[in-house]
Nucleic acid binder design. Sequence first.
DNA 1: GCCAACGTTGGC
DNA 2: GCCAACGTTGGC
Length: 155
Amino acid sequence: MSTRTRYWLMKSEPEDFSIDDLARVKVEPWTGVRNYQARNFMRAMQLGDGVLFYHSNAEVPGVYGLAEVASAAYPDPSQFDRKSKYFDEKSTREQPRWDLVDVRYVRTLKRAITLDDIRGQAEKLGEDFALIRKGNRLSVLPVTAAQWKTILSLE
DNA sequence: GCCAACGTTGGC
DNA sequence: GCCAACGTTGGC
């Protein structure tokens, strides 16, 4: 039995890049992740995996749309770009530190599923759901099929 | 803008 | 390996 995660949640600050931006460009390289855990999750992603598009640092934080993984993980070019704020001097082309995946727009939710909505299902989602764990700051995190279903049932 | 929580860095 | 200092995330 395969136990790979087929669903993920990815956070973006809407002032920086929102679901509307993704709807416009259709496919976006998920640049700028500089956290090893989040990077490792992206490395585990496979084409077609489902993504909950989450707005963080928003007026109303929550899931605003659906996307899907549109590439396998590959080195994030911004780590080599001296002019980028994501430049990492410890990264080399031979041994890149940071990967990303491309993310493709699927749809915008009819109504945002807010963080409050999601917290309301905490019991069903489980203590281990990283989004609602205290102090959690992970920007890319796995979602089980059951959690995916529970969250989308709130739309 | 505030601040709690967390990850990373670097001195020892 | 410990841990203080620092920077960042993200809700409020």
